[in-house]
């Protein structure tokens, strides 16, 4: 039974914050397989962060509220354990880089999480080195975290989570406070994690990147799942996205505009190369 469980399974999840009239999450069902990256998109206030925090138990154990439904991570019921126990399996990276840092130097910051897990000192150095290498911060060990740039701080936050060896990494808008360079840095890390077979959930507004890096996309609006599937499938339903005040990647939008303007029916794609080919063929026939 345990072997054919998926990495993350969510069944009939409902959640309501105290003193609110409406549920933040309504009947959420989805699953993510090992090695898959799931992108969650949706307008502000859709419940994206709440959903992400349900997966490591932060909601409802630390952030109180009424939760109905079940969340399984690696076959374990999240709400049977506690967040601290879950943190060995699920790493969580938050939005603001600065709020996640609490130590005096970069290496101590990374060592903090694994120290809480009780990893002996002899193993620490190796794990710190590995984690910093994965995010490209080798050589910054003795620096103060506050002296780093935003992108570097966010990568450090990722490194401190990675050092704890989680199977699943959740990133809640990790790039929204960063400039384009910082965004690139964070997404490069995500890409290399994907190559290592890490399971991940990323919440972001950058649909182009979501389309490029994610295996599945979940569109959330007003606490309900609107769409769930591979990026190509989700972003092809462009009108539905527009209704939800969201956008598809620019290439897809371009094809859509072309269709509208010339009354054509070109197949929508999120891939630049494919889109260019479709557009070229269609343009010849005008």
């Amino acid at each position: 039974m345990l072997n054919n469980r998926k990495a993350i399974e969510v069944y009939g999840l409902n959640f309501q914050y105290p003193d609110t009239k409406e549920s933040a999450l309504k009947d959420i069902n989805f699953s993510v397989d090992y090695g898959e990256i799931l992108g969650i998109i949706g307008p502000t206030g859709a419940g994206k962060s709440t959903l992400a925090m349900c997966i490591n138990g932060l909601v409802p154990q630390v952030i109180q509220g009424d939760l109905v439904g079940e969340v399984f991570v690696k076959g374990m019921d999240v709400n049977e354990g506690n967040v601290a126990k879950m943190s060995e399996h699920v790493g969580f990276v938050f939005q603001e880089p600065e709020n996640q840092l609490s130590q005096m130097t970069v290496e101590e910051e990374v060592a903090f999480g694994i120290g809480n897990l009780g990893v002996p000192r002899e193993q620490m150095e190796g794990r710190i080195k590995d984690a910093l290498k994965q995010v490209g911060l080798t050589g910054f060990e003795k620096r103060s975290p506050l002296a780093l740039s935003g992108g570097q701080q966010q990568r450090l936050a990722i490194a401190s989570v990675l050092a704890m060896n989680p199977t699943i990494l959740i990133m809640d808008e990790p790039t929204s406070m960063l400039d384009p360079k910082g965004k690139n840095e964070v997404y490069d890390v995500l890409k290399s994690l994907k190559e290592r077979g890490m399971t991940g959930i990323i919440i972001d507004h950058e649909v182009e990147r979501i389309a490029e890096y994610c295996d599945k996309v979940l569109v959330l609006s007003e606490g309900q799942i609107q769409m769930f599937g591979p990026p190509n499938e989700v972003f092809s339903k462009i009108e539905h996205l527009h209704q939800l005040t969201m956008h598809a990647p620019q290439v897809t939008e371009c094809l859509h505009q072309f269709n509208e303007q010339f009354n054509k029916d070109v197949k929508l794609s999120t891939n630049v190369e494919e889109s260019a080919r479709f557009l070229e063929n269609a343009y010849k026939s005008i």
Binding site: N82, A84, S87, E88, N99, Q100, G118
Partner: peptide, 12 residues
């Protein structure tokens, strides 16, 4: 920060 600490197994 308290959420972050919780996610870094501080209360373990």
């Amino acid at each position: 920060l308290s959420y972050v600490l919780e996610c870094r197994a501080f209360s373990r």
